[in-house]
Design a protein around this nucleic acid. Structure first.
Length: 335
DNA sequence: TTCGTGGGTAAACGAGGGTT
DNA sequence: AACCCTCGTTTACCCACGAA
């Protein structure tokens, strides 16, 4: 840290301390006013408490929601998914989002040049901000958190057949994915929601384009990625090394052939698709009615958030049947 | 063949609540 | 107080597809 930064930090530190004082006073006032959610949840019977102890004794008492089977080694007791039958038990996320104090209420002071001080929400210590990016945790706590996340994710990864996000068992017929169908669906929905909000479906930032769903920056990045592949003599599709016969081309023989095969079989595919029954193959099925945990579109109009054109044609009653069918077919894995 | 797009994945962030 | 476990969410990147 150079002297300039030190000076800048010390100047904002004073301001920051004032902010902390004000915040503390506000908090006091709020506590006096109403004893809010802390008291509400103090008996630890809320959904959060249920989830955190899911692997303990109370696992049977999770309402009447569908419970996924979860690999015991992961000790993830609950895999209830909002998209199918309601909110995930212990789904804190929605609460988090509604209860989280807005960013500006955090005891944070940052000047125009992006230098400042903030208070770590975990260890409560003040930490320096250098580049304007404000985190809730100090670097130390973030590092610890990162390591924990890594451990957790590696553990999930090591457990074959379990979803890498939620730990629930992945149905046999979905074994080519590392995420369970609801989690994948959830991600699709996230993107659909971004689209709805006029945001870039890739980075969720502001979409500066009226024409495209992806912002200029993301498109430029993708262009650059392909350009780099070309410069490295790699196929700009599969990124494999271009052979001598492929020299001068951007796409390898394999990918070119695949393209040809696709075209020749496309007609056949269309017939299969139209004759297939909905509900049995989740990859080709309307699953937009099944939004994953904490997916706000679960309550919103799913038709508007769906990215799949065929999703629009399935009526509500059929959606309900679909859900039941999926539940029965895909997730009934309890021994 | 190009390039926008949909969708999958890894890594990181953040929070609640438990344990040491 | 410090650290850990767990899990939902966000961000960034990559790959494959398909329209033009």
């Amino acid at each position: 840290m150079d002297e300039e930064q030190t000076a800048a930090i010390s100047s904002v530190l004073e301001q920051h301390e004032e902010n902390v004082k004000v915040k503390a006073e506000d908090k006091k006032a709020a506590e006096n006013g109403s004893k809010g959610r802390d008291e509400e949840g103090s008996h630890k019977s809320g959904p959060t408490a249920v989830a955190s102890r899911a692997n303990a004794t109370s696992k049977a008492t999770i309402n009447s929601h569908k419970v996924f089977s979860v690999d015991p080694s992961l000790k993830v007791g609950i895999g209830i998914v909002n998209d199918i039958v309601g909110p995930r038990a212990g789904d804190k996320s929605q609460a988090q989002h509604t209860q989280q104090p807005p960013q500006h209420q955090q005891a944070t002071t940052v000047n125009e040049s992006g230098v400042g001080v903030a208070q770590c929400t975990r260890c409560k210590k003040d930490y320096a901000i250098y580049n304007g990016k404000v985190f809730k945790l100090c670097p130390h706590c973030r590092e610890l958190q990162r390591l924990r996340s890594r451990r957790w994710q590696e553990k999930t990864k090591a457990t074959s057949g379990s979803c890498r996000r939620c730990g629930t068992a992945i149905p046999q017929d979905q074994s080519k994915y590392v995420l369970c169908p609801p989690c994948r669906l959830n991600l699709r929905n996230t993107k659909a929601q971004r689209l709805e909000k006029g945001k870039c479906v890739h980075c969720s930032g502001e979409n500066d384009s009226q024409t495209f769903k992806v912002c200029f920056r993301c498109r430029a990045k993708d262009r650059e990625r392909r350009r780099q592949l070309e410069l490295n003599n790699q196929c700009n599709r599969c990124s494999s090394k271009l052979s001598n016969e492929d020299m001068g081309r951007k796409v390898c023989l394999n990918c070119r052939n695949r393209n040809r095969n696709k075209k020749s079989s496309s007609a056949e595919k269309t017939t299969i698709m139209t004759s297939s029954q909905p509900g049995f193959d989740i990859t080709n099925t309307n699953t937009s009615s099944l939004t994953h945990a904490n997916t706000t579109s679960g309550t919103a109009d799913n038709k508007t958030t769906s990215l799949h054109p065929q999703d629009h044609d399935i009526p509500t009653k059929q959606q309900v049947e679909l859900v039941q069918q999926l539940e029965a077919n895909m997730f009934a894995q309890q021994p």
